[in-house]
């Protein structure tokens, strides 16, 4: 009898341990805020982990921001609680200029989050990569594209250099590339017709495809603007 009671007590104790956590823990955030950085509906490509935004929620004793990273294709997403947020893109982030938000009148974007939300944030890039064509074959990648200068007023900036990056994975920029080639901005004669090609060294282990994209560095702007990522056969 005593043994049985001990066993029952043990099972109840175990049950308490296993279930109690659901009582004293907060529920995880369930609302998703996601979106894309766009110019006239076209996403702005950037490098991973380089461009980020800040979400601020007022009403707390201390202020601290929630950092929202922008992915390579200009998308972002964040799991949040319902509430009133303010989204800002910190100064000098991204290869673009900010556009004043019509609601706040400045670069703060107010977000009233009551359910999951999909948004597009319009920005003004210095340049856009147009009519991109990247192809590959026999250990070589070739790219042809044009650049459209979007900002032409006093804030216009020149191009410092243009890169073609080739990576083994779909993370493509200077950090991960196995081959790259560049043209300096002063050597670009015709922005509407730029071509780059690069030989890709042998891959270990063997891999008969790669990922490539174009990156443009603008003078005095740290973050580069990137094209879409294209998977090419080698």
């Amino acid at each position: 009898m005593k043994e049985i009671l001990k066993n029952i007590a043990g099972v109840i104790g175990l049950g308490v341990i296993l279930t109690s956590c659901s009582y004293d823990n907060y529920e995880e955030p369930k609302l998703t805020l996601e979106g894309t950085l766009v110019y006239q509906g076209e996403p702005i490509g950037v490098s991973y982990n380089d461009v980020y935004m800040e979400l601020w929620e007022q009403g707390w004793q201390r202020l601290g921001s929630i950092s929202v990273a922008v992915d390579q294709d200009g998308t972002f997403s964040s799991q949040l609680f319902a509430g009133e947020y303010k989204l800002i893109i910190p100064g000098n982030q991204g290869p673009f200029r900010k556009i004043a938000n019509p609601e706040s009148g400045n670069d703060t974007i107010p977000i009233n989050l009551s359910g999951s939300q999909l948004m597009e944030i319009e920005v003004l890039p210095y340049y856009m990569i147009r009519s991109l064509n990247i192809s590959g074959g026999s250990d070589k990648v070739e790219a042809a594209f044009s650049l459209e200068k979007i900002i032409t007023d006093v804030n216009a900036k020149d191009i410092q250099e243009v890169f073609l990056y080739v990576s083994k994975t779909s993370f493509v920029d200077g950090r991960t590339s196995i081959a790259n080639t560049r043209i300096g901005g002063s050597d670009l004669t015709d922005l509407s017709n730029i071509s780059l090609s690069v030989n890709v060294p042998a891959r270990v282990p063997t891999q008969d495809y790669a990922f490539a994209r174009i990156g443009v560095r603008i003078q005095g702007v740290e973050d580069m603007i990137f094209s879409d990522i294209v998977k090419v056969d080698l």
Partner: peptide, 15 residues
Amino acid sequence: DNVRNNNPLIVRNPN
């Protein structure tokens, strides 16, 4: 953040 919370007059460093 703790420094800037305690003293809102402190401006952030660039970039």
